[in-house]
Structures are given as C-alpha cells and as structure tokens.
Design a protein around this nucleic acid. Structure first.
Length: 480
RNA sequence: CGAGGUGUGGCUCAGUUUGGUAGAGCGCCACGUUCGGGACGUGGAGGCCGCAGGUUCGAAUCCUGUCACCUCGACCA
C-alpha cells in the first residue's frame, strides 16, 4: 500500500483535510470548474453525465407515479413573491433581483426564482376551476438561484440544478399521501441507485420550509460524520391556495380550497455521492449513475490480438446495455488504473496476452479493489453480477459507517462526550418538543436537529435537555 | 457575513523578510524505446507572478482595494 499512497499523492487524504479532499476530487475527477462568478460553477461533462443519469432514473419514477413535466419562467415579479408571508420571509434574504431590462429600469423588479411555489400557484389559480381539474401532478427540471454567502461545489452553490415537484389535490388526505409517496421515492432512489442509506423523517417546526405545514426530509451521514439533507418533501395544506386564491367547485357545487405539496432534490446529490463513497484514491461511483460503469484496460496492447480481444469485449458489454469504455490510449496500464480509480469507475477489466491465453480477464471492483478472474464466456452476465456486487458492497460500507457513527444519548453530557471521543455523527436523543430545548442542545453540544425519524425509537422517556416528558426521538447532527 | 490563512506556467511549490526585471519537479507537444499498479531517453512549447490602483529610477516582493479558494463560526437544498 505504500506504493499506492504515492500514486494518489495529488489528492489530499480524507483524514488530513476532508474539505480539501472534497475540493480535490471535484476538480481532479473533472466534475466541475470554477467560473468568475462566486458560487456558480461549470458542471463538466463527467459531472453532468452523473446528473443526467440521476435525472433519468428519477424522472422515470416520477412518470410511473403519474407526474408530468412542465417548465415555468425563471422570473418572479416581486408582488407575486410577496403573496405568502412566511414564504417571502424565508427566501427574501437570498434572492437575486433583476432591475433593468436593457437600459430601462423595470417598473417592478423581478426575482430570479429561488423556488417556484408562487409561480405554480399563479398558474394553478388560472387553470383549476372544478374538481375535475384535480389533481395536478407537475414537476420541472430547472435551475434556481439563491444568493448564498458561503459556497461549495455541489453542496451549496448560488445557482443549482434541481427538480421541483408541485402538486395540487382536492383533499388534505390526498396531498399528505403524495408528500409521503415522494419522500419514499427519494429514499428508494438514494438506496437503490446511489447506494446511500438515508433516514426518513420530519423536520421540526423551526426547520421546516417557509410556508409549509410540515416538511419531511431524507438525511444522510457523510464519511466525516456530518449530516447532509439529501431531499425534501413538503405538505402545504391550503395555506398557499388561500394566499393565491386558488379554489375549485366540488361535486355539490360548493367552492373548495385545494391542498398542495412540493418536493425536490438537487445536484447536491452529487456532493452526497462523493462524500458517502469516495476514498483517498478518489471518487467511487454507484454503478446505477456512473457515466462509465466498466472501463477496459488492455495490457501490452501493442501485442498481436490484445486490442482485437479488448474491442470484442467492448462490443459484447455494450450490446448488453452496459456503459463501457475501452481506453486504448498509449498511457501505461498503471496510469490508466489510477486514472479510472480517481474517476470512480465501478469495475475495471484488464485484458492482456496471458488472459487471452486462458480465456479470461481480470475484474477489479473500485470500492474494495477486489480482483477476480472472469471467464470470457458469458462475460456480460458476470460483469452485471460484479456491478450489482459493487452496489451492494458500497451500500453495506456506507451503512456500516453510519451505524458506527450513530450514538444514542440520554444526557447533554453524554452527547458532548460521544462527539468528543468518537467524532461527529448522528446523535439519537429524546426531545420534549420545545424550541428552547432544541436551540439549547445546538448551542451547548454543536449538533442541531436533523429530523424526527418516521421509524420511532424509545431512547428514554425524558427530554435530553430539560428532563420533561419526551414527545419525540430526534436525530441530531452537524449539517453541511 | 465575522475571525484567520493562501493566491507565482495545466498541477505542486521555491523565490517575498532585505525591491534590481522569474525558477524546479510533475504535466503538455514531437520522435523513438516501452507496456500486468501512475515507464524512459532526446528535443520543444508554455508565466508581464489572481485582478485593479498606489509608492519607487525600478514591484512577484512594499501599501490600498478587490476577487477566488481553504479553516472556524452564523445562514441555507
């Protein structure tokens, strides 16, 4: 392994400086490049291809559950943004404004959408009249702008790509079911496509979305023990509908107010992948979203028959629907091994004269570097099995990391001690429901409330802070 | 946004204290030899020192401002 350290010396090791390690990977795996505008990055082809794969899988899940894609404007007139009081207050500090059109000052300034609830509401008010018009299950894939003070690639940028689902329903029950359904879709996606375990939970009052009745989120734990909110799903009740005057006539010819939801995930998921699975050799990509699932590295490719065989393998795998790349550049095999490990390619196949003689190739799994020989007969099948094994291995590893860094605590002292001795992580502790206690826990221990998990656990019957009867089990953590 | 740190070819950095007109290694390009964990030889290209002002006969070096990145806080997908 000593030699190995030298190979990857260009990436700062995770233990030395996790933040620098993260930045190194973003740059060296060619996911992003900075631009002259703070917080606005170029997502390079390799990074964007990951996003395209995320989009494709999620979009399919959305469509399977009856959602339709739309596209709304990127500008919101100030008066429209101002219609829902909590919503404006939540977003006003971080919106960017357009005040000029060419040389003329605008009568009313336009905000660059930080999120599109208000636009959807304006639209719904126009198109919804009857119970027959409901529900509307809309989603859009767009970018939004939030003028953040501190920015980091993927985790917090001023412009970011996301999808925002906005649905409107006849009844509260239906909207609540939608909110839960989308939370479940996100959690399934994270676990099955990104190999990333998440905790589904409800946000506390102080932490919920501006204008929502309740906010649900999936929370993931990164390799360094910090929490990352990976997706949110909000139930709005009829608050927005009232503010925007959206009504419909029901079967009995009486005017009713509909109920709404919104839900979203962003390019932050790419940051989550990096920080959940990455290691000191670079990126480790889950097979489902990896732009290249298998890279073929020919060894002694100048020798007769090697490139021919490599091409044959390439064609076989490609025909089987695997995203495969053959690197026949004249870099040395060793160089290629390191390069594709840094880029996180899940499986590498090595094929050289000795392999050809024995009718097999070498398969190396990125996440654990395990090497096996695979027969060239039925190769597509066995490669698919390897990809599945990589996914399973990555999930197990990420889950083990989370378990190891999850602590159940019954007192403030215990929280402090666990964090001090075992490092950052998820802290499970009971809470009375009082905001004062929530703030106090954060102020004294450094960990804030992440969510109230849907799967309840009884750690004790008393609030970890005040000792009064507990209402909820809360997962606490330091957040990105 | 508050406190601290760093900006020098694509990358990692030396040079800044004490001003005198820019270096190394890696990478890149060409050719040849190589090829089972980042190969080697020979030749070559590439930087007005983050940017803008100022001081000075003269600024990578001193001063002011600004931008970007990193760390720790506060805010957030």
């Amino acid at each position: 392994m000593a030699k190995n350290e030298k190979l990857v010396s260009s990436i700062t090791s995770m233990d030395t400086d996790f933040a620098q390690w993260y930045t190194d990977i973003c740059k060296k795996a060619e996911l992003i490049e900075y631009t002259s505008v703070k917080g606005c990055m170029v997502i390079r082809p390799y990074g964007y291809a990951i996003w395209e794969n995320i989009q494709h899988i999620l979009d399919t899940m959305f469509k399977e559950t009856g959602h339709e894609n739309v596209c709304l404007p990127m500008f919101i007139p100030e008066s429209l943004l101002n219609k829902e009081k909590d919503h404006v207050e939540g977003f006003a500090p971080e919106v960017a404004w357009v005040t000029y059109g060419g040389k003329e000052k605008l009568e009313e300034r336009l905000c660059v959408r930080p999120t599109s609830e208000t636009l959807f509401c304006e639209h719904y008010a126009n198109i919804i009249h009857s119970y027959r018009d409901l529900p509307k299950l809309y989603n859009q894939w767009v970018s939004v702008v939030r003028w953040e003070k501190t920015t980091r690639p993927f985790l917090r940028s001023r412009e970011f790509l996301w999808q925002e689902g906005h649905t409107i329903h006849a009844t509260a029950e239906e909207a609540i079911i939608e909110t839960e359904q989308m939370l479940n879709i996100y959690a399934d996606f994270c676990e099955k496509a990104l190999a990333m375990p998440v905790i589904k939970g409800k946000k506390t009052e102080s932490d919920k979305f501006a204008g929502a009745v309740s906010t649900y989120a999936i929370e993931a734990l990164m390799h360094d023990g910090k929490a990352l909110q990976a997706g949110t799903s909000h139930y709005f009740g009829d608050g927005f509908a009232k503010a925007f005057d959206i009504t419909y006539t029901d079967k009995n010819n009486t005017i009713q107010i509909p109920h709404q939801t919104s839900w979203g995930v962003t390019t932050r998921l790419i940051g989550a992948i990096i920080m959940t699975h990455g290691d000191d050799n670079g990126l480790v990509l889950p097979p489902a979203v990896a732009p290249i699932q298998v890279v073929i590295v020919p060894v002694a490719q100048h020798k007769e028959g090697v490139l021919e065989k490599a091409n044959e393998i390439y064609n076989t795998l490609k025909a089987a629907g695997i995203r495969v790349k053959l690197d026949d550049s004249d870099n040395s095999p060793g160089w290629k091994y390191s390069e594709y490990e840094m880029r996180g390619v899940p499986v590498r196949l090595e094929i050289g004269p000795r392999d050809i003689e024995e009718n097999h190739c070498v398969a190396v799994s990125r996440h654990n570097r395990e090497k096996v020989f695979l027969s060239l007969d039925n190769l597509a099948e066995s490669v698919k099995e390897r990809l599945q094994a990589v996914h399973d291995g990555m999930y197990a590893k990420a889950l083990a990391n989370r378990e190891e860094k999850t602590y159940s605590c019954t007192s403030m002292e215990e929280i402090k001690e666990m964090l001090a001795t075992k490092g950052d992580g998820f802290v499970k502790a009971m809470w009375c429901g009082d905001e004062e206690c929530e703030d106090k826990v954060k102020a004294e221990t450094g960990v804030g409330s992440r969510c109230i998990p849907l799967e309840h656990e009884d750690i004790s019957d008393k609030c970890v802070c005040c000792g009064k009867p507990a209402k909820h089990m809360v997962v606490w953590g330091k957040a990105y």
